[in-house]
Structures are given as structure tokens and as C-alpha cells.
Amino acid sequence: MTISLSNLLKDNPTKRCLIETLTPKKRSVHIDLENSITDIFNLISNCLQINNEPVDIVFKTGKMKNTLSFPVYGKASRSHNSNTVLILLTLLKIINERATTNTTSTIRDVYYSNVPLFKTQRTVNYYVNIIRLNFPGMNSVIPAQKGLVYTSATMEIYHADGSKMMLMGGTSSLIPYLYETSTIACAVADFDKIIILEKEAVYSKLVQNKLMLNSLIITGKGYPDHLTRKFINKVSHLCSDIEIFVDADPDGICIALNYMKDCPMAQYKGITVAALINTKDEDNLMKLTPRDSTISRNLLVKLQRLTSHQKGLPGIKLALQRHLFFGVKGEMNSMLLR
């Protein structure tokens, strides 16, 4: 039977009927735990090759669900739609391969395996996070380790599958990969202190000169990644005295807040702007930029929404207010590297 517009109009007198008739039959494929990745590929290929119907790929993005159609049909089409499908399926394929061979790749490696497709590393990061949302516990593609840890006593990390990792005492190493179920134990009963630092330079200085005995020193090199925060959360039972040292600027305080989110007992210890002023060395001080002021203001507003179970919050608020009132900021290096 041939379809012509006049025939269609005859059969479908209203606009709604016409749209309904013209919309192709489609199938929905849900990316979630119920379907394994192999199933997802089978469903999609069956749909496209055998049934000749478009697919709706449904997945969670946060609280909302998103639907991508392939091939694109209907009014909701967007130009980058098919590209997004491609990225998503490519990533799923990579994750499936890694999972079957039980290996892991970093986001960076994945990005460089197909730069023209992903264009930026951020894209990979974004979609890997989305896939992790739909497949919690997916560990095949992970961010490269960023944080560093120095321990004065040997620590052992036990994973759920029975494997074990050691962090040798007196050495500095990258923060090891951890799973939700991993546990960390330490030979000595207690550390005196757990020190969290913003700056790697300060970390190196402390580690090289062996300035801190019987302690655990951690740096997330600026804003901490997931792994560093998870690690701190898992070692927090080893010591009750957890101290955070960051720059005396709004970003530093934002970083401190980031750490405190996963580890509420951690205490903000500065470097405070008052301590910098007391050095009487004007080279340690810089003026607050308009951007800094805005960050401080926004953080102060945000603090009001945080629950008050974090006992360190008054100190954080005080630090932010003093930044704004004094109009200056400074870096921790100048204080701690002496």
C-alpha cells in the first residue's frame, strides 16, 4: 500500500490522530541493574536490525529520568542526540569489556582512546557518572587517583572479594582504590593525628622532613576527588583528632567544607587570615578579588542551609566573615613552609 498525504489526511481528520499515525512504533530499553550490559546491546540491536523500530534508551540522571531516541524521530529531536547515544553506548561497551576481563581503566585512558568522539575529558566524566548512577558499584572506569597519603604505620586494606592491599609505614603513596565494602585496619592502635592538607607542596615538606610522627597525612591536591574523601571517611575511626589545613582564601574554606561533608568530626584549623596578619609580613597577604567576595558570600548563605551537626561550622563562618571584613586572603605555604 502506498501512503500519500491525502490518504493520511482522509483517514486522520484531526491533528492528534495524524501525529499518532505518523509516530513510529518504538521500544524502550532501560539502562539499569535489571538488564545486564550484554542484554542492553542485544535488545537494541534486535530492535534496530530485526524489527526496524526506533529505540528509546531510558536512564536515570539524578532524580530525573532521561530518554534518548535512536534514530531520532518526532518533535523532540535535538542535533546532538545521536552523538550522545553513541557516547553512552561506547562507554557501556568499554565498561563491559573491562568488567569481563576484570580490569580497570581511568577516565583519562578512556578519553584518549577516542578523542574525536568524546571531545573533552569532562564528557567522559559526566557520562561515566551517569552510568554509575544506573549501575551502582560499577568500578571498571574510574577517575585517576589524585590524592596522596603518608602513613607512619603500615595499614591494610581488605576488599570484599578477599583481596588485600598494604600501605607501608613511613612511605607516601597514591590513595588506593576502595570499594564501598572495603575496610581499613592499622597495626598500631591509634594515630596521634590525621592531617588533611590542601596543598601538595606542604604535604611533601612534611613528609620529606618527617615532621609529623605517628600520624596520617593526606592531601587531595586542591578540591578533593571522590576517592580521597572516601578514604578519609574509612580511616576516620582510627583517630579522633582530624585536622584540616587549607589556604586562607574562600576556595580553601570551600575545600575544607568538602572534606567535612564526608567526615563531620574533622576540624577546620586554618590557616586563618588572622594568623597570616599576625606574621606582620605583607607579602603573605593578597587582596580579595570580586570573585572571592562572591564565593564567600555564597558560602555564607549556603552555610545556613547545612545542618548544625558539624561542630566546626561556627569556625568556618567566622573565617568567611573575616575574609570579607578584612578584604584579604593568603596561602598556607607561606606559613607552613618555614
Partner: peptide, 14 residues
């Protein structure tokens, strides 16, 4: 001392 451990023994005057 304030919350962050800075001394206020000789307090700056605002």
C-alpha cells in the same frame, strides 16, 4: 581564643 584557635588576648579593635 576564638573558634579557630587564634589568640584574642590582644584583641584588634574593629
Amino acid at each position: 581564643h576564638d573558634e579557630n584557635g587564634d589568640s584574642t588576648k590582644f584583641p584588634p579593635i574593629f
